[in-house]
Nucleic acid binder design. Sequence first.
DNA 1: CGTACCTTTGATAGAGTTCAAGAACGGTGG
DNA 2: CCACCGTTCTTGAACTCTATCAAAGGTACG
Lengths: 251, 251
Amino acid sequence: MALAPVTTLHARRHVGADPCGSCATCLVRATCLPQGLAQSPEALEGLGYGRKRVKRDELLCRMGAPVESLYAVRSGFFESRSVIEDGREQVTGFHMPGDIVGMDAIATGMHGTAVVALEDAEVCVIPLARLGQPEVQRHVQKAMTHELSRARGMLLSLGTLSAEERIAAFLVGFSRRMQALGYARDEFHLRMSREDIGSYLGMSLETACRILMRFHREGVIAVKQKRVRILDMAALAARAASYDPHHRKLA
Amino acid sequence: MALAPVTTLHARRHVGADPCGSCATCLVRATCLPQGLAQSPEALEGLGYGRKRVKRDELLCRMGAPVESLYAVRSGFFESRSVIEDGREQVTGFHMPGDIVGMDAIATGMHGTAVVALEDAEVCVIPLARLGQPEVQRHVQKAMTHELSRARGMLLSLGTLSAEERIAAFLVGFSRRMQALGYARDEFHLRMSREDIGSYLGMSLETACRILMRFHREGVIAVKQKRVRILDMAALAARAASYDPHHRKLA
DNA sequence: CGTACCTTTGATAGAGTTCAAGAACGGTGG
DNA sequence: CCACCGTTCTTGAACTCTATCAAAGGTACG
């Protein structure tokens, strides 16, 4: 159950390894918004989208701030946080390279969440003015429907699953996203703290911790601090009981 | 604390009172999708959007079914239900006249929820082909961002609020939506059962019931079966601790 | 190399679920 | 119009899960 050193993870890391690179070499290009605007890498380069670097714990955008642009994550991980009136706050999402951040704000013209970098990161800045263009609109619409699906999944998770099921579902989902980015699917580095995980999943940090340790004890995963290895994906998935739009019960 | 008879409610009801009426007299017209396509009522009429009637407990669309169109609710109330793999299901939304239903499905081309009529209802059918039109796209995008905001609000509710706070927030929100439709804001008829409310808010039907009774006992509301009167809106709002995008804690 | 933060673990308390049973309501047929 | 029956709502009691409080390791970072 021993975990490989972190360096193993970093060796696999070919996303965002080139923070100053051009779009031509950007490995999240396939999911990137500007992609819809230009077919060739050269044309992409000419679009003049800005880049922005954000250091760890810095804010990409503030809650309540007016929206000037959307952001496409190029490298690094982010989390979204929202507060309710009385000051309590909750993590509402984690964002990986290829994700588009800030769409929720288009309706109100104001960011509904604060987006924080969990590690040094870089984003592409997409001016809001671009949204008038039909190709951009189509791309954003697609990203938005995905956000909606994800949000409904979280709703189901928070509403009907037990804490253990939510943790399992979280790990399986995280694994899938890592795999989609070219990382290993069964060994990864959680960028966020136990408190963030707990907040995101609607439980205390202690509960999140205890359940991760329980899975470790039972041999489903190996976990040490932020390093996680999935030892029995099937067992984990079995405990996740996730949302399945193909399910025919209500058909 | 006695409640007025239901007829009082129905007397106020001027939305959807004309189920066969034209768009020109439709009172949810302002929020209706086709509105963006035609400036005059006559032009609206000519767009040839279909109508569809749905009886109580009938499905407007099935989960997993291919998406052919969106629906704009003209009259009546609906609820959305999703299932997770193991068969457990949850109510994920309630839909009132003026709401657009089915947007979540655009990405996958398949409905992620089953939409059920809570009473006899009528909808306008919006063929998916229309989505290519820029005006429609813009309108749908706006509706979608509102859905996203609502979803995040629910996430916060399920993640950080106590059962009592969630019930309070639900009542305040329901009241606001009723008022926006021209109904009384402090006296209304819940179309859904306690089980539906509980499911939507992530608690058992007994808990939903007990909390409503607690509010009744404390004089905050008067509730008898599905009839609700809000006696002390301020007290209710104080317990709701809802999501506020203007909040500056994370700014 | 020390300090602050994060993680882990234990003990206790409280909120909410589950099981169960009675009451109220609404629709239906005589 | 009334009685009946199924459904929904209400309420109680026992139990479970999760939160909270507290404190002891670890880790990472300056």
